[in-house]
Amino acid sequence: MPTVVIGSARDIVEHCGVPRFLFSDFPLGNPCGHPWDHAMQAETLRLAAGLLETATAPRTTLRSPFGWKPEDPDWRDRYNRIRPEDRARLLAIGDERRRRRGQAPRT
C-alpha cells in the first residue's frame, strides 16, 4: 500500500527508512502544522498527499517550506537538553523508574 509519513524527527525517520516522508521542521507535537493555523495544516497535507503521486523511489524526503515561529528561534536547543544542574534530578527519575519496573538498581 502506498504510504507517506508526516513527522518532525528527521534523523529517526530516515534512519528507519520509509517510502515517503514529509519533514516538518517543528518541535515534536505538531507535525501537520502550527496549532490553529488551518491554512498551513491544509498545505502540509496537500504536500504529503502529493508525495503519494510524485515520489518515484523509497526514502523520498520532502522538507516542508514552513518553519517554526520566528519569535522562538531557540526551540532546537531546548528539547531534552541536559544542563549540569539537571543531572541529579534525572538520575533520581531513572532510579524511580527502575524501582517501579522491578529492574536492577544502578550500580
Binding site: P27, G29, N30, G33, P35
Partner: peptide, 12 residues
C-alpha cells in the same frame, strides 16, 4: 516549545 491543544496539528 509547543502544545497539543489543536487536534488538527497531529490528527488532520
Amino acid at each position: 516549545s509547543t502544545h497539543t491543544e489543536d487536534r488538527e496539528s497531529f490528527l488532520p
